[in-house]
Design a protein around this nucleic acid. Structure first.
Lengths: 106, 106
DNA sequence: TTGACACGTCGGATTCCTCCGACGCATCGT
DNA sequence: ACGATGCGTCGGAGGAATCCGACGTGTCAA
């Protein structure tokens, strides 16, 4: 592993986003997951490693298989970051309304 | 420009995220923005190009300067994607509660 | 008009990401 | 015990992202 991924870069890759969506339906083993993509199993395994380091998935070994579970909690960091922009946007709209009211008074 | 960035990859870069945060305080010209980073002006210009293509910023030429404005609306796509995981997570908690209630009955 | 300034983009270097085949380890079924 | 299966990781290749200096264009101030 060459890089230490944060949540933002973990979900910047469409394959990894698809993996997370698949895991919403329930835990899946690696080979099982890999069949949904036109990628080799090592590639999926490496994507899972990135998701693991971002703490978006947890692994549960079952015999020689390894089931991956979704843990969406780290997404809250992204959500919070975006939320601060929503507040900004509402403020902008609010300012605009006040401006229009001022215009009406004239 | 070699790639056509979506919103997810636009915000995957910390410099671009910082630019968006700076723009919350109001529109800024490029040189002005670049001073906040230890990067050359061309580098910032290229990050702005990515943000522009993701429609997260709008440009307003003022004479020889170019002011960049924030437009957080495309972030809604990311927010919606994350929201679907929040619903998943609430469902999981709900299921868990029911399971515990069943256990209590025994 | 002329020099200074603000900016975008190009060419090329460097670093990072993504992918695969190969290998090794643990586990399963027989 | 042994071959098959599931998986992680390594080495290296290919491509993409990031960065900078250099250059061109348009604008300003004098």
């Amino acid at each position: 592993m060459v890089f230490e991924p944060d949540v933002f870069s973990a979900i910047s890759n469409p394959v990894r986003r698809d993996i997370l969506v698949l895991l919403k339906k329930g835990p899946r083993a690696v080979n099982d997951l890999a069949q949904g993509f036109e990628l080799s199993r090592p590639a999926i395994s490496e994507h899972l490693q990135v998701l693991r380091k971002a703490r978006l998935v947890k692994e549960e070994p079952r015999g020689r298989e390894r089931y991956y579970h979704l843990d969406p909690r780290p997404l809250a960091e992204v959500e919070a970051w975006i939320e601060s922009f929503n507040r900004y946007w509402k403020q902008r709209l609010h300012d605009l309304e006040e401006l229009l009211e001022e215009e009406d008074k004239k």
